[in-house]
Amino acid sequence: MPDTVPDQGSHGHDTPLERRRAFRRMVESRSAALLPGAANALSARIIEDVGFKAVYVTGAGVTNTQLGLPDLGLVTATEIAETTARISDVCRLPVLVDMDTGFGNALNAYGTVQKLERAGAAAIQIEDQVFPKKCGHFAGKAVIPIEEMLGKLKACLDARTDENTLIVARTDARAIEGFEAALDRAHRMAEVGADVLFIEAPESVEEIRAIGALPTPQLVNFVVGGKTPMMEVEELEKAGFSLVLFANAALQASVKAQQEVLASLLKNGSLREVGDRLATFEERQRMVGKPELDALVARYEGS
């Protein structure tokens, strides 16, 4: 019988402070670390189990998965904080949390950062869209004045209680005011203390490389079917990026897999044609940590 619950993954960290320090080191290394998105605790556990070193709580994914609705600013701060807490409870990776626009003005952003930090966030992302926001690859976006965004960003920086909690500042100005205006906003955000810059939806490899040349660490986001051209991670590391975000790759894979498996079940009345697409019963239990809980039962109940 083990004395402790078995370790959950080779890259995990036991305390929020350790996770925040690990994420800061990752950002400072500028190694183009891959950052998959999770919309729930199970997805986060899979990301950790596969071997990634950090996880992204995706606002779009939470909206799609938990509400069954598009990314149009419909999710609440409470829902994001609850999802973050559930993920932090079972996943030992550092968590970067998408808090959209901060769910209101600077005061709302201040309070949201406090909630998310308590929920276990290692880093928190805020953007400059008009509230309620839209997906960064949707048409019809609008951004707030830069001075208003800087005030919200300062509120986020002041709200954190741990200096290792990083604040990621995102601008969506590329689609509205052009690339140079987006770069200018990024520079202004860096001047007031943003730890990481995120220029959403660049539209060419040249724009991506220009973002990578910024002195403050940067994040690039890839969306299958979105506006940003795909690049290999080796190219992105060479360009100077810290983080490479695939916010909804797991969600899109899940949608397709469920459609195909369930369509086959409806057509055939069985899973005979798609049985190899399913995780085994044993694998499903392993992914949700049943062996670890069984060990606790044996330890405390003597079975």
Rank of each mutant, 00 (worst) to 15 (best):
I167T: 05
G151K: 13
H137I: 12
C156D: 04
A159F: 11
R170F: 09
K154E: 15
A159Y: 11
A182T: 09
F198H: 04
H187T: 13
Q218F: 00
R160Q: 10
G102I: 06
V143A: 06
A181I: 00
A210Y: 00
T171N: 10
E180G: 01
Q125I: 10
T112P: 12
V192D: 05
D128F: 04
Q218A: 14
A123Q: 03
Q125S: 09
E235Y: 01
S204A: 06
V192L: 05
A122G: 10
F131H: 14
E177Q: 14
K227M: 10
E127I: 14
G136Q: 07
F222G: 07
G151Y: 01
A119R: 05
F138C: 05
F131Q: 12
P145K: 01
E234M: 02
R160N: 09
P229L: 00
P217H: 01
Q218E: 12
T171C: 09
R160K: 15
G102W: 03
G212I: 01
D184K: 06
E177V: 00
G111F: 12
N221F: 00
M149Q: 15
E206G: 01
A142V: 11
D128R: 02
Q114E: 15
I124H: 01
P229Y: 01
Q129V: 10
N221T: 02
A119D: 06
K154C: 14
P202H: 06
A109F: 09
P202C: 10
D158R: 14
V143Q: 07
V113L: 05
K134E: 11
I126L: 13
P215M: 00
R174L: 11
V224D: 14
A181S: 12
V113F: 08
V233Y: 00
K134S: 13
L236C: 03
L243Y: 05
V143K: 05
I211Q: 05
P229W: 00
I167Q: 03
L116Y: 09
L150H: 02
I124P: 00
A175T: 13
T165K: 03
A186D: 13
E203F: 00
G226M: 03
G136R: 03
L150D: 04
D172E: 15
L150N: 03
N108D: 15
E127A: 09
K152D: 14
A123C: 06
G212D: 08
V220W: 01
M231P: 05
I167P: 01
L157Y: 08
A106Y: 09
E163I: 13
A122C: 02
V192N: 05
R160M: 12
M189Q: 12
A109M: 11
T165H: 02
K133D: 11
K133N: 11
A139E: 15
R185I: 11
D128W: 04
A119I: 10
G102H: 06
